[in-house]
C-alpha cells in the first residue's frame, strides 16, 4: 500500500543544508499497524508529512496505493489527502471558531458533499469517537482528549485508506492518552491501516511493527510479538 524508494528531504538553511531524511525505503501493507520511533529531530515528522502527502520529497519515489505520488502537483496531492488520508496532529489543528461538527465536516466540504449527507456523515464520525453529545461545542469548550477525538473524527469522516497520527498523545496526560490509543486500536481492528509517530515505548507497543529512525535513516524494523503488545487486539 505504501512504498517509498530512497526518499530524501533536504532543507536549505541559507548556505547550510539540513538532510532531514537520507534515503528512506520502506513498504507498508494494507491493514498494518506501524509505529515510528526515534529521538527528537531524527526526521519522524518529516517522513509522516511525506507519507501524508502534505509535502514532497527532494529526491526519491513514493507510491501510495500503486500511484506515484512523489511527482504530483499541489492540487493532486490535495485530492489524495482528502480521499485517501486521515491525518491526526499532536496539536489537534482544529479551527478554533468552528463547532466540533463543522470541524469534522471540513474534509467533506472540499469533495463536494453537501447538506444532509455531509451533516449525517460528520455526525456519524463524531458518534464513532463517542462525542455525539458535543457536536455544537467549540474546541475551546472541549478537553484536550475530546479535541483530539474531534480531530480523529475529522480524519475518519471520508473513510480514508490510511490513518496517520503524529504524536497524537503528545499533548495529553497518560489517562487521556490511553483513551485515544484504545480508539486507535479499535480503528485498526476494524481494518484501517495505521501509522503512528511516538516517543513513548508504551504507546509504540500498541502497534504490530516498530520502525526506528535515526538521523534521517531507518535504523531498525521490528515486528512486535503478540505477547509484548499493549492494548486489546
Amino acid at each position: 500500500m505504501i512504498e517509498t524508494r530512497d526518499l530524501w528531504k533536504t532543507y536549505e538553511m541559507g548556505a547550510e543544508k539540513v538532510h532531514a531524511l537520507r534515503g528512506v525505503s520502506i513498504s507498508i501493507d494494507k491493514g498494518e499497524y506501524v509505529a515510528i520511533m526515534g529521538p527528537s529531530g531524527s526526521g519522524k515528522s518529516t517522513l509522516m508529512n511525506l507519507i501524508g502527502c502534505l509535502d514532497t520529497p527532494t529526491q526519491g519515489e513514493y507510491y501510495l496505493n500503486s500511484r506515484k505520488v512523489s511527482q504530483m502537483n499541489d492540487d493532486e496531492l490535495a485530492a489524495i489527502r482528502n480521499r485517501e488520508i486521515g491525518f491526526v496532529f499532536q496539536t489537534f489543528n482544529l479551527l478554533p471558531r468552528a463547532t466540533a461538527l463543522h470541524n469534522v465536516e471540513l474534509p467533506l466540504i472540499y469533495n463536494g458533499t453537501t447538506g444532509q449527507d455531509r451533516r449525517a456523515k460528520a455526525m456519524q464520525a463524531l458518534e464513532k469517537v463517542d462525542l455525539g453529545d458535543r457536536v455544537t461545542h467549540k474546541p475551546s469548550e472541549l478537553s484536550g482528549g475530546q479535541r483530539q477525538r474531534v480531530a480523529m473524527a475529522r480524519a475518519l469522516v471520508n473513510d480514508p485508506s490510511l490513518l496517520l497520527a503524529d504524536e497524537p498523545t503528545g499533548n495529553l496526560d497518560s489517562k487521556t492518552s490511553i483513551e485515544i490509543m484504545k480508539l486507535i486500536d479499535e480503528l485498526h481492528r476494524q481494518g484501517n491501516t495505521i501509522i503512528i509517530v511516538t516517543h513513548e515505548r508504551d504507546i509504540a507497543r500498541h502497534a504490530h511493527r516498530i520502525l526506528s529512525i535515526l538521523d534521517g535513516q531507518i535504523a531498525e524494523d521490528l515486528t512486535v510479538p503478540e505477547s509484548q503488545r499493549n492494548g486489546v487486539h
Partner: peptide, 11 residues
C-alpha cells in the same frame, strides 16, 4: 494550513 491539510485545493 488546516483547510489544505484536509484537502482544500488552491482554487
Amino acid at each position: 494550513g488546516i483547510r489544505k491539510s484536509v484537502g482544500a485545493k488552491r482554487r
